[in-house]
């Protein structure tokens, strides 16, 4: 902590300190997560229990990150794209295409390690396509990525036809191990997630790419005038998003060990965007919060878990999510906040 910060903390009153904590962006999503956990604990006192079954950890606290991992991967890529003032609607389609390619190559008899890289290359290719449309052709991101969103699942179905398409299921010790296996007591999927997160974090924060992405998203003209190649930076964001989506695709496809382009990762783009927004990033771009995005994904998964443990039918999930989106958005709107404040002030008088 710098000296200025230390002095300011010391000189401020307790109230101001609390206010500063309240304003910190990590507090609200964390509070939401804590609240959900408390609700879960009240409903089911065994919520925090972690057992060891068949040599691996079991319990809600393991289950939530386990289920959240694919969405969190996609959301991390989405956070990068949103940081540049863009959006990537095609992530679900990329997952679908990746799944189909994996199944196709397994049926073709490729070595499974190679297939892992082929799957990532598919994501890279999709990212290049989106990046080309947005950065080179200057098409609005929503529309540019809509193209792959519309056609991607169809492409997946076509790839399924390449090997006859009669039985799109497969077995792959390597891929299934990555998705549903465990190393020691810990699910491999979580280790994979941590590994990819570390890679992405290093790429963004140990090089200057993160700063460039954020400056281009915050003020493209200013970034350009400091000599940053804005087009290449935007391009890279979509490539990263494509890669993240395809790595989520590997986990999701291996989990069900089948290619199901129509329903795999349905609405995952919406969950990913929601995770980024809960993580405190603005859709207007300019900031990438990787850790906060994971927190956002955990909040979304905990919400689902809470609905399930509370005995509410799972159908309520979507409505609750919608309400969360609306509340978060309204809270971000300055017009709405001032309206609420003025109504409250009137009440007091």
């Amino acid at each position: 902590m710098s000296q200025a910060q230390t002095t300011s903390t010391r000189s401020s009153s307790l109230g101001a300190t609390l206010g500063a904590i309240g304003r910190h962006r990590v507090v609200w999503p964390l509070a939401a997560l804590a609240l959900l956990f408390i609700v879960d604990f009240i409903i089911s006192p065994s919520f925090f229990n972690i057992r060891i079954v068949e040599g691996r950890l079991f319990g809600s606290l393991i289950d939530i990150p386990y289920r959240a991992a694919p969405t969190a991967l996609v959301a991390l890529g989405m956070a990068v794209v949103i940081g540049t003032k863009g959006i990537d609607l095609s992530v679900g389609s990329i997952v679908a295409i990746g799944g189909a390619v994996i199944t196709w190559r397994i049926h073709a008899g490729d070595p499974h390690l190679l297939i892992l890289f082929i799957a990532l290359a598919v994501g890279l290719l999709c990212g290049l396509w989106n990046g080309f449309l947005v950065a080179a052709l200057d098409i609005q991101p929503i529309i540019a990525t809509l193209i792959l969103m519309v056609s991607g699942r169809g492409i997946g179905l076509m790839i399924n036809l390449l090997y006859g398409g009669t039985d799109p299921s497969f077995t792959s010790p390597l891929l299934q191990g990555l998705s549903t296996g465990h190393i020691g007591y810990i699910p491999t999927r979580l280790l994979v997630f941590v590994f990819i997160f570390a890679l992405l974090w290093t790429l963004l924060r140990r090089t200057a790419l993160g700063l460039f992405l954020e400056s281009v998203g915050g003020n493209t003209a200013a970034a350009y005038l400091t000599g940053i190649n804005a087009r290449m930076v935007i391009f890279s964001a979509y490539v990263i998003s494509g890669l993240m989506a395809s790595s989520a695709g590997v986990i999701l496809t291996a989990d069900t060990h089948t290619s199901d382009p129509i329903s795999v990762a349905l609405n995952i783009e919406l969950d990913a965007i929601l995770a980024v927004v809960i993580g405190g990033a603005s859709l207007g771009g300019g900031r990438i919060y990787l850790g906060m995005t994971i927190l956002g994904a955990l909040v979304i998964q905990s919400l689902t878990t809470t609905i399930l443990t509370s005995g509410m039918p799972p159908e309520y999930n979507l409505v609750v999510k919608a309400v969360v989106v609306v509340v978060v958005l309204l809270l971000q709107s300055s017009n709405f906040r001032s309206l609420t404040l003025s109504i409250l002030a009137r009440r007091k008088r």
């Binding site: 959006i87 859709l283 159908e315 309520y316 979507l318 609750v320 919608a322 958005l329 017009n335 709405f336």
Partner: peptide
Amino acid sequence: DFCDIQPFIVTLAGLFLLRGSCFM
């Protein structure tokens, strides 16, 4: 208009809300 939010995200929430209501 009032909250100055992109139409895309507001109608996305609408998508969730209406589809979820169907399931309910």
